[in-house]
Amino acid sequence: MATATVWKNVAVAMQSALAAAKTITEITKASPGVVTSTAHGFSNGDYVFLSVSGMYQLNDKVVRVANQAANTFELEGVDTTLFETFSSGTAEKITFGSSVTTATNITSSGGKFDFIDATTIHGNSKSQIPGLPEATTFAMDHIWDVSDAGLLSLKTASDNQSKRAFKFTFGPGGKIMTFSGYVGAALLPGGSAQQLVTTPSVITMNGTPTYYAS
């Protein structure tokens, strides 16, 4: 039976820094995938941002390090068995130093596939195959507070049009979702008479999210 999760006690953390990029020389097709990176210096439990060519399914993905050794580590919970073949890439350790604590609601959307018509002249019915999925977004309304550090971090990311890694931790239970994306946040105030002054933000995801039970 599924364990229900409620939108309360949710910690939203955003990347505040990335460490120096470590070169990846190999990623296996396995469950989980194993990364070779000489003297990477990562520890178990670290979160890293991947920039990958060839094995495109991992590009822009935020993953957790497991079973690290001097020159290798596992991509915890990521099955790469059916992914494309790796050609090159880097991994950067993420510091989640910005906390977003002002959101009053959140809405997710997108992810639907555009389908490509593959109907032949020999068939008697339409045939289609999935193309690219549309971008996934998280739209939030926030309490408007221009002195709040988290809101100011969102605005900085938006102004710089820079990609950021995010980590949502759902409590109790500690389920985790990680992903990367671009932020839109102008901190413009809005609302109705005698109601809370709010400001919107939107995160447009790059790649796909990673989930952890705890």
Rank of each mutant, 00 (worst) to 15 (best):
D148Y: 03
K155T: 06
H142G: 08
N105A: 08
S127D: 01
A139P: 00
G171K: 13
G110N: 07
T137G: 07
H122N: 14
M177R: 12
P172S: 11
W144L: 09
A118W: 09
T137R: 10
L154E: 09
K126A: 12
L152V: 08
P133T: 09
A135G: 14
G171A: 13
L132R: 05
F168C: 09
D141Y: 03
T136W: 03
G150Q: 10
Y182E: 03
I116K: 15
S153Y: 06
G110S: 09
N105F: 04
I116R: 11
T156L: 12
T120N: 08
F113M: 11
A149V: 06
I143H: 08
T107Y: 05
D159Y: 00
D148V: 01
T156S: 14
G131H: 08
L132I: 08
V146Y: 00
N124H: 04
A139W: 01
T137A: 13
G131D: 13
K167C: 08
S127G: 00
S109K: 15
T136R: 15
I129A: 11
Y182C: 04
P130F: 02
G181P: 10
S127E: 01
S180H: 04
S153D: 14
N160K: 13
L151E: 11
F115I: 06
I116D: 12
I143N: 12
S109I: 03
T120F: 06
F168S: 05
A157K: 09
A149P: 02
K163W: 04
D159T: 15
M177D: 04
I106R: 12
K163L: 15
S109V: 01
F179C: 13
Q128P: 00
G173W: 08
D141N: 14
I116T: 12
F138C: 06
F170G: 00
G150L: 11
D148T: 02
A157H: 07
P133D: 08
A135H: 04
K126D: 05
K167I: 08
K155V: 10
V183E: 04
V146R: 08
R164N: 07
T137W: 05
F170L: 15
S127N: 03
N124Q: 11
D114C: 00
S180D: 05
E134H: 13
